[in-house]
Nucleic acid binder design. Structure first.
Length: 570
RNA sequence: CUGCCCGUAGCAUAGCCGGAUAAUGCACAAGACUCCGACUCUUGAGACCGUAGGUUCGAAUCCUAUCGGGCAGGCCA
């Protein structure tokens, strides 16, 4: 639809020039004025004439009527003046030449405008804390982060996905103490992260009774910080075990990271930034701690160093950002975290600016809402948590039961169950605006009816099934559009690029999820009302087969953008 | 106390850089198809867009106030 609008805008410009020389609009102005009518029967795009009424000193309906009489464009089939709007209809020729053919030519590149070529985007997402449970609280950052990465990649950006692991801090002292006291190599090897978490929990329980344990933990962490050989070895082992398990989940989601540089990596990069802050005079001592005062910007101060001189979260983030700028020279550096951290990001972004780094405006915080389970807050203590691996396992199990019942002879059942099961959860999560708090209702997440992942997966598989049936047919006759369903479908497909652009502009994967539903719903209407392979007329049949193929292409691309895998058969 | 975010049909939401009858799914009530994939499609009912003001030719959308919910706020991340 973008190119259609552009062509119409140019024709509109010359038409307006004919009407009055007082109109000083550019093509871009007109482009921005176009909107979509509330009902598609009104038109494909609309040009509101209200703003022109002041310049022309005429009522909007009069203007619309005047334009409708003079307007000419090769891509427009008709125009109608209604209520001060000029409603514009696209020609079928345009839909065939500029949508169907374009999808066929560009294939999986269709929808991309290449606007990111030559640019670098860095994504900081997922970032679980090592040796802690990986639960649905991490689903947001993981899935939104990756989706944003795929969207940018689609537009041509060079993307770097960074898993900023929480792999440093006093919790490792605790873990080492707990391991030495209650753990064993065998138990940890068999139990993996679950065992590490159990040790961690055990430590906290015992430390409440025995304060001395905390001191022991601090000592062990100090030893770790001074590169004590044994503690380093243990630490690496713990990180390794955790990572191995997270990677299973990442694999189910089809996620790979380019870097796993966690907090530990930046410990030696902080002093330089602290020094810079100190020399610049930005850093002040307040109540013993080192802070950067931000009252001028209506924010509480940003804490850089504790009273005891040790570093804090913002310190490490600043050092990491500087490192990443040097390492990747990014045009965008995107952080996907819960909305609760908005203030912290605003603070240290501001500090980066005050430090004189001219790339401060390339830092982007993408917040998302809090997750609760069945209306209750997440709480590790009360056990109100759902581990991601368990959530996915439940979903996969449910799908596999259905497959067993409906389609027991399906090859590679496991693979399909995983794609559809994991996909249903991802789709459910990415369906709404990321900023909204989400109440995770298992029953809804695993529902297969209505606007769900399985509905989309099923539609895709249906396309594949039809195309398989049609394979071997020569479909290269001239396409003809003979129904409104076909035209509507092409119109929806033509909006893919707009969806991608909006999703990137707003950092909002749900735009794509919603778009997928639009495509599926439009295709299913078409499927229901039009015979495809069985169509009597050969050129009609061929057109419909090619349309089906176009839907498959676009859906396939769109699935990838929200990290949902696709399957040809279900 | 201060700041940020959210508040749309029974439920979950879309629409929010102002524009034509407020859209989708679930649930509910009818119906079509049961043929290319078991799915799906059609129709109906259901909303004074939290409340009150304001700006505008025009407000779910912008501004102010207010209520309700969530989150954050110097030594956690």
């Amino acid at each position: 639809m973008n190119n259609f609008k552009l062509t119409v805008a140019k024709d509109m410009l010359s038409c307006l020039a004919e009407i009055s020389s007082d109109i000083n609009l550019t093509v871009d102005d007109i482009l921005a004025m176009f909107e979509y009518p509330p009902d598609s029967s009104l038109g494909d795009i609309a040009f509101p004439c209200f703003k022109l009424s002041r310049i022309l000193r005429k009522a909007p309906p009069m203007i619309a009527k005047e334009i409708s009489e003079k307007f000419k464009s090769s891509v427009v089939s008709k125009v109608e003046a209604v209520n001060g709007y000029l409603n514009i209809f696209v020609t079928n020729e345009y839909l065939i030449n500029n949508v169907l053919y374009e999808i066929e030519n560009k294939k999986e590149k269709y929808g991309s405008d290449g606007s990111g070529i030559g640019k670098v985007a860095v994504f900081d997402y997922s970032s679980p804390n090592v040796a802690k449970p990986f639960h649905i609280g991490h689903l947001g950052t993981t899935v939104i982060g990756h989706s944003l990465k795929m969207l940018h990649e689609f537009q041509g950006y060079d993307c770097v996905g960074i898993n900023y692991l929480g792999d440093w801090g006093t919790q490792f002292g605790k873990l080492i103490v707990a391991y030495d006291t209650w753990g064993s190599q065998e138990k940890v090897e068999n139990g993996g992260v679950d065992e590490l978490v159990a040790l961690y929990v055990k430590f906290h329980q015992e430390a409440e009774k025995d304060e001395e344990l905390n001191q022991l933990a601090r000592n062990e962490f100090t030893k770790l910080e001074s590169h004590d050989e044994r503690n380093i070895k243990l630490w690496k082992w713990f990180v390794d075990i955790s990572l191995k398990e997270y990677q299973k989940t990442y694999k189910q989601l089809g996620i790979e990271f380019d870097s796993y540089k966690g907090e530990s990596f930046y410990t030696d990069k902080m002093p330089a930034q602290i020094e810079k802050l100190r020399n610049s005079g930005l850093m002040k001592i307040d109540d013993g701690a080192s802070i950067v005062d931000l009252s001028e910007y209506n924010m509480p101060p940003c804490l850089i160093l504790k009273r005891d001189g040790s570093t804090l979260y913002p310190t490490r983030d600043i050092a990491a950002a500087v490192y990443r700028k040097e390492a990747y020279n990014f045009d965008k550096c995107i952080y996907v975290t819960s909305a609760g951290q908005s203030l912290h990001f605003a603070q240290w972004f501001k500090v980066v600016e005050l430090m004189g780094y001219d790339w401060y405006d390339k830092l982007v915080h993408v917040p998302y809402g809090t997750v609760s389970i069945n209306g209750e807050k997440l709480a590790t203590r009360t056990g109100n948590v759902i581990l991601l691996k368990d959530l996915f396992a439940t979903a996969i199990e449910k799908v596999s039961e259905i497959i067993e019942e409906k389609n027991p002879n399906l090859p590679n059942k496991e693979e399909v169950s995983e794609a559809v099961g994991v996909g249903s959860v991802v789709f459910y999560y990415l369906y709404n605006n990321r900023i909204k708090d989400i109440n995770f209702i298992m029953e809804d997440a695993l529902s297969f009816d209505g606007n769900t992942g399985p509905y989309a997966q099923y539609t895709y598989a249906r396309c594949c099934g039809i195309l398989e049936k049609a394979s071997g047919l020569n479909v290269n006759t001239d396409p003809v559009i003979t129904s409104s369903e076909e035209a509507d479908l092409l119109k929806v497909l033509s909006k893919f690029n707009e969806a991608v652009k909006d999703a990137i502009k707003e950092y909002e994967p749900s735009v794509i999820t919603r778009y997928i539903i639009d495509v599926c719903s439009s295709f299913n209407k078409f499927y229901h009302n039009c015979q495809i392979v069985n169509a009597e007329d050969e050129s009609v049949r061929n057109t419909r087969i090619r349309l089906t193929n176009a839907v498959k292409t676009v859906l396939g691309s769109a699935f990838g953008l929200i990290c949902m895998k696709k399957t040809e058969k279900i």
